[in-house]
C-alpha cells in the first residue's frame, strides 16, 4: 500500500495551467515531508506537474489513476 496524500486537490475540469497553480496555492497546507495530490484531466499536467516540482525544489512522487479512472499526480513537499 503506497503512502496516502495528506491533501487531495480536485482539479478534474480545470484547464491548463490551473492544476499547477492550485498545487502551488495549497502546498503550504501540508507539512514538510507530507504528500499532496492533484487530480486533473488536463493533458499538460502530466508534464507540467513534474516540471513544477523540478523548478520549485519539490519531489515528484508518482502518477496514478483514481478508482474512477482520472489521472492523479502525487507530490512531496520538501520545503
Amino acid at each position: 500500500m503506497s503512502e496516502r496524500a495528506a491533501l487531495e486537490l480536485d482539479c478534474t475540469t480545470m484547464p491548463c495551467p490551473m492544476p499547477v497553480i492550485e498545487l502551488a496555492r495549497h502546498l503550504g497546507e501540508v507539512e514538510v515531508g507530507q504528500l499532496l495530490a492533484v487530480v486533473a484531466l488536463d493533458p499538460a499536467a502530466a508534464v507540467d506537474v513534474p516540471a513544477w516540482c523540478r523548478m520549485k525544489g519539490q519531489e515528484y512522487v508518482r502518477a496514478e489513476v483514481t478508482d474512477d479512472g482520472r489521472p492523479r499526480y502525487v507530490v512531496r513537499r520538501l520545503d
Binding site: C16, P43, A44, A46, V47, A51, M55
Partner: peptide, 24 residues
C-alpha cells in the same frame, strides 16, 4: 507550444518529450 494555443488542446509533443514546462 502551450496546449491552450493548439487546436488539439494538447501541449507541444516536443516540450513534452523534453520534460520541460509546457504552459506559458
Amino acid at each position: 507550444g502551450s496546449a491552450c494555443t493548439a487546436s488539439t488542446l494538447t501541449p507541444s509533443h516536443v516540450l513534452e518529450a523534453m520534460g520541460v514546462l509546457t504552459h506559458g
